[in-house]
Design a protein around this nucleic acid. Structure first.
Lengths: 189, 189
DNA sequence: TGTAAAAATTGACCTAGTTCAATAAAGATT
DNA sequence: AATCTTTATTGAACTAGGTCAATTTTTACA
């Protein structure tokens, strides 16, 4: 049984033992090595991916400068899916790549639809996590437009200590919209 | 009948005539004058609000400088609701205020739950629009971290011509994380 | 239609953060 | 342990954009 995901879901909706077993049948486990891509810009995001352990970066390639811009990081007990691409089954505009060995649970688009049809109360779970993510994006926009780089960096360390541990500084800089050199200067204090 | 909202929903899920009539009973119309608040920071967002006509701004008050930071604008055929506050019925961290006379359709939290229970296919509609909004927020973060002020301003004019028409420049500046003076300099070219 | 208030513009100066290039430190690999 | 690669740091010069204060333009409305 894929207890880790089931436990996460149980925080938001209650599943009966039968539902849990049924739920379980839809998901398969996959392991990525460091550097492996889960999704490439231009491809359709075929699976919804739940992270059991490991870390990934989602990034967008700036077409002029060719530089990568971090959209988000994903670690244990969170998702690494381009939701728009997955739900509409149309090409993604960004990439998702493993920063270290990563274990995932995956479900295909077809299975996902079938699962929702058979266990409708999961609609609620997915709506709730979507809303939470949406709230965090709004928060990020506010903070990005309001506070200076030093504040944003220290807020990141406070909010995401686990990510800060795993992820190189220059990628955190990119996530925050700061240059790697400037992050280094912030740290000097 | 509240055709405008029903038409919007019909783009994503099909409702029978009976469902449409039932749907209709849950919503009530409300008019705001220019300057009226729909939601204040600290209050619970009691209703989901669909805009028939008019314009609103959602903004966050920066606690140090006391300045307002625009989180988003909402005009005809879109929503003006703090989703996190509405869904969890807990205090909002931002404000929503009318920029001009605005007509809304409203539904209370209780009615919203009841409506979803009676017309479950609406779950799908709300998930779809949530996903679309989420995609636009991700896009906004990428653009904000990647491009300079002039590009962001011209992209805004292109993407939201109707909003650009209605909303004062200095608020658009705030939305984009730019000073009003600098927007004015950008325009000189 | 005149007056007040709100919004936009302009100039002068300033600074937070960038860029580039070189160096140092840390991690990974044989 | 030595070497290669990836990250991080530092310095120096620069610039995108901010701030402040004054002025003009536009809009609202009595």
């Amino acid at each position: 049984m894929h207890y880790q995901l089931i436990q996460n879901i149980s925080k938001h909706v209650q599943l009966s033992p039968e539902e849990k077993s049924l739920f379980d049948t839809f998901w398969t486990e996959k392991t990525l090595d460091k550097g492996d891509y889960l999704l490439r810009n231009g491809e359709v995001c075929k699976n919804d991916n739940y992270i059991i352990s490991g870390a990934l970066k989602a990034f967008y390639i700036n077409s002029d400068k060719g530089k990568e811009e971090i959209l988000y990081f994903s670690i244990d007990d969170w998702w690494a899916t381009d939701i728009l691409s997955f739900q509409k089954q149309r090409p993604s505009i960004y990439n998702i790549q493993a920063l270290e060995e990563t274990r995932l649970l995956q479900i295909s688009y077809q299975s996902f639809q079938k699962m929702l049809a058979e266990i409708p109360k999961l609609e609620r779970y997915f709506r709730i996590i979507l809303e939470a993510y949406l709230g965090s994006l709004q928060q990020r926009i506010i903070v990005g437009n309001t506070y200076d780089a030093a504040y944003r960096y220290s807020a990141f360390l406070k909010d995401y200590p686990k990510i800060a541990q795993k992820v190189p500084q220059y990628l955190i800089a990119s996530y925050l919209g700061i240059s790697p050199e400037f992050i280094s200067r912030i740290r000097k204090k």
